[in-house]
């Protein structure tokens, strides 16, 4: 058993802290009545996830998570809420007492199933580290092994941008 103040103990403590951040953020995101608070919860959750990526030894993915999810996605969602929701106090829908029980039981079953699966699986250690997760390696594999996926994603983004432009243009002609 490690002492709490050894290096491993502190690491464990920080790890528990990141898990707590993720879970608390997720709970705020799903349970708050005001949408803007839910976005802040989502941001907290993303920060926790970024910290988890850092623990998994891929600082690049962790920083990208911060840059894209916290810095761009959350800001966009918050901006959309600001433009679309004039009454922050408005209730989205009445809470059904049965809904909470049902979702909790489904969640518990899912958790139990995943736990059993994780504990009973015979995990094989990776034969070799695929790559060091550095920017150079990620870039190389994006442009060689995964170039097809990369191109497809960029086409999807292009379609999304054109679609957004078309929608915005229609609104302009009506006005």
């Amino acid at each position: 058993m490690n002492s709490l103040f050894s290096a491993d103990g502190l690491t464990g403590l920080v790890f528990l802290g990141t898990i707590a951040t993720t879970v608390v953020g997720a709970i705020i995101a799903t349970n708050s009545v005001r949408l803007i608070r839910a976005v802040v919860g989502l941001a907290i959750c993303f920060i926790g996830v970024a910290a988890l990526y850092y623990f998994l030894n891929s600082p690049f993915v962790a920083l990208m998570e911060m840059l894209i999810y916290v810095g761009a996605v959350c800001v966009t969602i918050a901006f959309a809420i600001m433009l679309a929701e004039p009454h922050p106090e408005k209730q989205v829908g009445k809470n059904n007492a049965l809904a909470g029980v049902a979702s909790l039981s489904v969640g518990a079953m899912l958790f139990w199933g995943l736990t059993v699966l994780a504990r009973n699986t015979n995990w094989k250690a990776a034969v070799s580290v695929a790559n060091d997760g550095s920017m150079r390696e990620v870039g190389k594999s994006l442009l060689t092994t995964y170039s097809m996926v990369f191109e497809l994603i960029s086409v999807v983004l292009l379609v999304a941008i054109i679609g957004a432009l078309v929608l915005a243009r229609q609104g302009r002609e009506k006005a």
């Binding site: 941001a43 920083l63 990208m64 911060m66 840059l67 916290v70 810095g71 761009a72 959350c74 800001v75 918050a78």
Partner: peptide
């Protein structure tokens, strides 16, 4: 830049 993108929030 990752952290700088948060401050607008």
């Amino acid at each position: 830049f990752a952290f700088a993108s948060v401050n607008v929030l």
